[in-house]
């Protein structure tokens, strides 16, 4: 479905991704895991063509997203959906109009048909009856489910999830994780999930890609990842604060800083 070749992205001097290669297979849930600053959100934004790579290619079903024209991209977007970290519902519209948004914008369907479709999508995420609620009246978990329903509105082939479980209580997080797994299987869609939630990631993934500082350090099925020999992988899965990935991110020698040695680099 998506093939990524030597993908790099730099922000000024800082490299967020270093020539990454990977594949997203059809009808699977691919989970991209990593800590903060590992480059996973940057990677997702480029898979969804929200950001342009500094170098390399993202092939989406034969189209190179790095050099695609806006018109073609917008046609491809009908086949993509995205659930954003903070849901990103349009806050001037109620739940119904948010879910119906792409149908209103890109189809000439009758309102009665759109109503039926919206009802079905809301039923899939378990929120039928909330049509007239405004986004500000929803809890975080409910807003995410509405965002999920909105992403499903055009029956996309692939849905991107940015941190679907972060900021949610364990039960809501579990609900979202289960929804992703179930809907991916039932509707034969493809899901790409970016998360630092190890528990949810291992639970829903068919394939896991583990990023660290802009490099892929491990990939495979959840079981392969659980048994991975790399110490960094085990540290991430267990959430140990110190190990091969060091606790201290200080850039200067501690003793120099304490002694106020000249020439010490100060970090804000």
């Amino acid at each position: 479905m998506i093939r990524v070749e030597k993908l790099s992205r730099t922000f000024g001097e800082v490299a967020a991704l270093n020539a990454v290669d990977l594949q997203v297979r059809k009808h699977q849930t691919t989970v991209i895991m990593g800590g903060s600053g590992s480059g996973k959100t940057t990677l997702l934004r480029m898979l969804a063509a929200l950001d342009k790579p500094s170098s390399g290619h993202v092939w989406f079903d034969g189209h190179d997203l790095a050099s695609i024209r806006r018109k073609e991209l917008y046609e491809l977007r009908a086949r993509m959906g995205m659930v954003f970290q903070y849901s990103a519902l349009l806050n001037s519209l109620n739940v119904y109009d948010n879910v119906a948004f792409t149908l209103h914008e890109h189809t000439q369907l009758d309102e009665s048909i759109i109503r039926t479709m919206v009802t079905m999508k809301l039923e899939q995420v378990g929120l039928r009856g909330f049509e007239s609620f405004m986004p500000s009246e929803l809890s975080g978990g409910m807003a995410k489910r509405v965002a999920f329903a909105r992403a499903l509105a055009m029956d996309p082939e692939i849905v991107f999830f940015d941190e679907p479980t972060s900021g949610l209580d364990p039960i809501s997080a579990g609900v979202i994780a289960t929804l992703i797994k179930d809907l991916t299987q039932k509707t034969h869609m493809t899901s790409v999930v970016v998360t630092h939630d190890v528990h949810a990631g291992l639970q829903i993934a068919d394939y896991i890609i583990l990023l660290w500082q802009g490099d892929i350090i491990a990939e495979g099925t959840p079981d392969e990842i659980r048994q991975h020999a790399d110490e960094r992988v085990q540290q991430f899965l267990e959430g140990r604060p110190d190990g091969p990935i060091p606790f201290s991110r200080s850039k200067t020698a501690y003793i120099d800083d304490l002694l106020h040695k000249p020439g010490v680099v100060r970090i804000l």
């Binding site: 969804a48 929200l50 917008y74 046609e75 977007r77 009908a78 993509m80 959906g81 995205m82 954003f84 970290q85 903070y86 990103a88 519902l89 349009l90 806050n91 948004f101 792409t102 914008e105 890109h106």
Partner: peptide, 12 residues
Amino acid sequence: TEQVDALEMMAI
């Protein structure tokens, strides 16, 4: 709140 990106993703 990523609404600009959301519009972009919905081909608007």
